[in-house]
């Protein structure tokens, strides 16, 4: 079952063509790692998938349902109401967390489920507390984001995304704003999610982690997918010259 399917996606910013004909898909329960040099368009791809950017050309489906269709070379999105519905299928964890600074940890997690999804308050609070426990922050529910360390904030952000009960989670370099010794905590949480068969699309520079956790690795460069496949193939035995170069640089 394909949870996400993108066909022939093209995206430019003015004259700058950032994504050039990208096609990819993600199966339910699959963990996909996207790696590649800076400026290769990884974030842009994720932002198109999470509807923060609009695609210029190409089509996109969530769980087989159309989100954006290609009509003679131009992308046409479905209506506002359907988009809103589709949005509840995924969550996104940002590089710099983007928690709401004026809300407590608990309110950050519960506000959208209560006011956007209109779920039962009690159920939402219970879910939120379970999630906080899962990310190891059960004592911090009344703190404000500014009172937490970067690593703690990122774990709250993951809990916030999970509280929406999404079917897939996107991560855009979730650890690169953090000190290396704090990274481990985040990666542990993500590894646990992978074990629970959460569908995840992770943009990362942690090659070892990608190799460890991902079912599939996508290597991007210059706005195209250069190579993709099982970590054992792409990371340990890259076929492409550019992939080899990139991995060599990362090892240093």
């Amino acid at each position: 079952m394909k949870l996400l399917e993108i066909n022939h996606l093209k995206k430019s910013f003015g004259e700058l063509s950032v994504l050039k004909d990208i096609s990819m898909h993600v199966e339910e329960g699959e963990v996909v790692a996207i790696i590649g040099p800076s400026g290769s368009g990884k974030s842009t791809l994720l932002r198109c998938a999470t509807l923060l950017e609009t695609m210029d050309e190409g089509s996109m489906y969530y769980d087989g349902k159309v989100v954006a269709a290609d009509e003679s070379g131009k992308t046409v999105y479905v209506g506002k109401k359907e988009l809103q519905e589709r949005k509840s299928m995924f969550g996104l964890v940002f590089q710099n967390f983007n928690l709401f600074p004026h809300y407590t940890v608990l309110k950050n997690i519960t506000d959208a489920p209560i006011h956007v999804q209109k779920r039962d308050k009690e159920e939402v609070y219970q879910t939120a507390r379970e999630l906080l426990k899962k990310v190891g922050l059960e004592t911090k529910e009344d703190s404000y984001p500014c009172q937490l360390s970067g690593g703690q904030q990122q774990r709250v952000a993951i809990a916030r995304a999970l509280a929406m009960k999404p079917r897939m989670l996107f991560f855009d370099e979730p650890t690169s704003a953090l000190d290396p010794e704090i990274t481990a905590g985040i990666l542990k949480v993500m590894r646990q999610l992978a074990e629970e068969k959460m569908t995840m699309i992770i943009v990362t520079h942690e090659i070892a982690f990608a190799k460890n956790v991902a079912d599939r690795v996508i290597f991007m460069d210059g706005g195209v997918i250069v190579e993709e496949g099982a970590p054992a193939d792409v990371i340990d035995h890259p076929k492409n010259e550019r992939t080899r170069n990139f991995l060599q640089k990362m090892e240093k």
């Binding site: 949005k87 940002f94 983007n98 709401f100 959208a112 006011h115 916030r160």
Partner: peptide, 26 residues
């Protein structure tokens, strides 16, 4: 920061909700 708008958008807040819940208080 634009990240606040983006976080709200991904969480499914409407424009009005985003303004009154996230933007206005800050």
């Amino acid at each position: 920061p634009v990240g606040q708008h983006e976080a709200a958008s991904v969480l499914g807040y409407s424009k009005v909700q985003t303004f009154w819940k996230v933007i206005f208080p800050q």
